[in-house]
Simulated assay, not measured.
Amino acid sequence: MQTRTVGTTMPVLEIMLGPGERVTAEGGEVSWYTPGMQLETSTRFGSGGRGGFMSGLKRALGGGQLFLTEYTAPTGGMVAFAARMPGVIRELTIDPADEFMVQSGSYIASTTDVEVSVALQKRLGAGIFGGAGLVFQKLAGHGRAWVELSGEIVEYDLAQGQSMIVHPGHLALFTAGMDLQFATVKGIKNKFFGDALMMAEIHGPGHVWLQSMTAAKLAAAIEPYLPDKSGGGNGDN
Rank of each mutant, 00 (worst) to 15 (best):
A176N: 13
G143W: 10
Q121A: 11
E91N: 07
Y225N: 05
A82F: 00
F81M: 11
L13A: 08
V88I: 09
K189V: 12
R22I: 12
S150Q: 14
D195V: 06
L171H: 07
S117V: 03
S55C: 02
G62N: 07
S47P: 01
L134E: 07
E70N: 09
G143K: 07
R123P: 02
V154Q: 15
I202C: 04
M37L: 15
G18Y: 07
K138C: 04
T5W: 02
E14C: 09
G161W: 06
A172F: 05
F136Y: 15
T34V: 08
G151L: 10
G63M: 04
F182M: 13
A215Y: 04
L120Q: 13
E152V: 06
L226A: 09
P224I: 08
N190D: 13
E14L: 12
A140V: 05
A220Q: 14
E201R: 14
F182E: 08
Y156S: 11
E201F: 01
R144I: 07
M54L: 12
L171D: 12
P19G: 06
Q160C: 06
K191M: 12
T8L: 15
L134M: 12
A159V: 01
F81N: 11
L120T: 10
E115L: 11
S31V: 00
G206V: 07
N237G: 03
A97S: 15
